[in-house]
Structures are given as C-alpha cells and as structure tokens.
Design a protein around this nucleic acid. Sequence first.
RNA 1: CGGGGUGUAGCGCAGCUUGGUAGCGCGGCUGGUUUGGGACCAGUAGGUCGUAGGUUCGAAUCCUAUCACCCCGACCA
Length: 419
Amino acid sequence: MKASSYPLFTQKNDPSDAEIISHKLMLKAGLIRQQSTGQYSFLPIGYRVLKKIENIIRDEMDSIGSAEILMPSVQPSELWQESGRWGTYGLELLRLNDRHDRKYCLGPTFEEVITDLVRKDLNSYKQLPLNMYQISTKFRDEIRPRFGIMRAREFIMKDAYSFHINEKCLDNWYQNYKDAYNNIFKRLQLDYTMVDADSGNIGGSKSNEFHVLAEAGEDDLLIDEKGIGTNFEIAKAKYGSNDIEKIVNENNLIHKKGIEVGHIFKLGDKYSKSMGLSIADADLNVNHLQMGCYGIGVSRIVAAAIEQNYDEKGIIWPKSISPFQFALIEIDGHKNESVRSFSNEIYQTMKRNSVEIILDDRNAKLGNKLHDWELMGVPNIAIIGKKEAQNNIVTFKKRSGSEKESLSADQLISKLDTD
RNA sequence: CGGGGUGUAGCGCAGCUUGGUAGCGCGGCUGGUUUGGGACCAGUAGGUCGUAGGUUCGAAUCCUAUCACCCCGACCA
C-alpha cells in the first residue's frame, strides 16, 4: 500500500463525543466513524484490524474442526416463538415487519436459526457431532449503547454452535472450544482471564466468560489465589452478599475489571427440546441433542486491545493485529528522485518478503507522518531521506521505543521478523 | 425511562446572561519562502447557528415544542 492513494482519516483534534481511551483513539486515528448511537462504520485502517482478529479466530475454529457458515441476520418470528424467546428476550430484540406484515427480528444471536437448520438436515447420529460457526453482524437494541464499539447496538460477533448425541460429547467439545479460545486470546497478545459466569438470556447449565483485563471494563471479576475467576454477577449468589468489598476481603480474592470478549455456554437440550431436534442413537433411543454455543465479540476486541495498549501518542498494536506491520516514511520523495526510488526499492523488497508495509509517500512533513503512524499504532517505523538514500540505509524505530538506528535492507528484514 | 449535559464551517470551540444579521484555532485550496518530529507569510473557499413554530422592526441569542448525540443510573451481556 502507498499512503498517497490509501484513505487515511486521522484527526489532529481530540474528538468531543468520546469518553474512554479506546473510543477516543479509534475516532482520532480514523478507525471508525459513528453513524448513529451504537452504530459505526469501519474505515480502512479499522477494518484491517478487525479482519486480522477475524482471521485468527477462523484459523483456531478451523483447527478444532468447526466449519464456517453464514446465516441470515433477519430472522422470522416463528422460530423465536418456538423457542419461547419471542416473549422472553425483551426489548433488546429489535422487531420489524415486512411488506406482508410478517414479523421478524434482527438477529442478536442465532440459536433458533441454526437449530432449525440442523433439524432439517440431520438424518443420523452418525453425522454428529456437528460444529459450525459464523462471523457476522449482530444487532441488540441496547438500552444505552456506550463507549464507542465497546457496547454497540450493531457489532461483529463470531458465534459457534455444536450438536451432540450426549452430554459427554458436549463436555469434550466444550473443552475443545475452551482450548481454542485460550489459543485465540494468546495469539491476540492480550492480557485476559477466564471466569465462571451467568448464562443469562442464552440459557444453559454452564458458562464461562473470557475477559480482557482493563480498567474501562464493565464487569467485576473476582479471582482467587489459584487464579480461578468468577464474575461478580454469580459471585453474589455464591457468597451470599452484594457487597463486593466484603466478599473480596473475607475470601481473600482479587478484584479486577474486565471487558467481556468471549462467552461459551453448555446449552444442553434447551433449544433442541423446545424446537424438536432429536435423533435415534445406536441403541435406537431417541434423544434431544445436546448443544453448546460459543461467542466472541470480534469488534469489541478491537476496542479492548486498545484499552490495554496505548500511550500518550496513540495506539500501540500487538503485532498480531496491527493494520500494517511496517510504515516506511519517505522525506520529500516528491522533490527528491533518489529518495523516491530508494524508498520504492525498499518497499518492493519488503513486499517480496511478505512484510505488510505501507509506504508513506504523501506530500507532508516528517513530523506529520510520524505523528500519524504513531497515532495509528503501527509497531515498526522507518524513515528514508537524502541521508539514507545516499548510504543505502533506513533509519528504524519501534513504535514502543524512542531510540533510532541505521539499518541496511537485510538488517531491517531480520529486525522486523524478530520483533 | 429518571437525572445531568451538548448541538454554531471538515475537527475542536467562543459568541447566548444584556437580541442588531457570525467569529477563533486546527484542517482545506492557491501562490511564495521553508524543509530530518505537527513550518512561516499572503490570499481564498466553506455555516439556512439541529429542526419547527412563536415573540420582536430585527433572533445563534428570548419563549414553546421536537429531534439527535454524550455522561450517570436503571437494564442487558
């Protein structure tokens, strides 16, 4: 990519409508723009980050054998009537009518749709277990959306669903997803923790949440000396108190704030029973299928990652999800042919070596360019001016540090690889 | 839904108390001078002051209604 022809929307002024750091930086660095309350467009830089996260998730889902699908976001009310949630889900479910006055909702979650899908196509227990996921837009009509994409009405979520002949198989797969989630959050290079949680509106017997630890988090987590955590929501019942300070002191717990970025559920037969999804097993016993569902707030992770990785200059992306790995800044390339050609040479070399590079060939001053890339959080930055072009070197600096060093093209490549 | 706040140029804001027909910084564009961490000078474009109604000779300013957005709470996950 070359910055001169790539849409960048950084702003110099702090946005006025943002409170928490991730929201401010996402607006300022030009990752998102608000469309209306709780609804945002992703601009090119923001969307690149989002896709990085999606692809890590895809990779880990694929590796445990969960297959990607895509379901319609407008869902017929009949399915929700069957599951019983048309009446119980509440105002968070955005309902709408089509031209024939048939009732629909915008999907906040997809248990009904996928259960319907599977019951129509499942013929034999031998096809089980089934594991499928999608990455798609979800809509929840939150009473009060806030903090940018952290609590949006419209957001990107990965939701996986599993179907099993018995509980033992569900247990095994629940563990598979748990392992995959740990891999995902490790690869995202985020400081996170898993806790026991309340399964709420989704239902089921057992659920665990994955939280990115950050002060801006809306959840209170209680963690014991063994590192086992509980969401305060269910800790209230467990310890018989609403006083979080008291619970923490009496039970020797640590209190941390978390951003819920993942939630996995053992649903059991809640949906298979209400929606009639059953099959005969090898002994000809007909059972309702055991189900699990496994969500990750993909767009929320973008914000959560920023809450954990920033400084006074802007975002500092973990390498795994940075929009670019490397920003190469040329100084006055439009006026200096040797600078331009050397920059292009380095740019092509990097591309040949599969480095995700953006060449900043804009007609702007060095300071402006540096401020932009530091704001956007790209981990590696290098500069090429007259001096560098003459000596076949680049001046390299990491986003996270302040020292600069002179490197040859070869040295630069190994520097980036070992970052 | 209750409480608080904000809507004025692309972004950030002043002006409103005390009505007289809109301004500042940043950004944009043009020209020139600059050029290694957000340059300088000159010029220039850009706003039915959220919307509707009312009061008035006259409304960004006063009154009423309404809409949007932000924050706290309730709620939800």
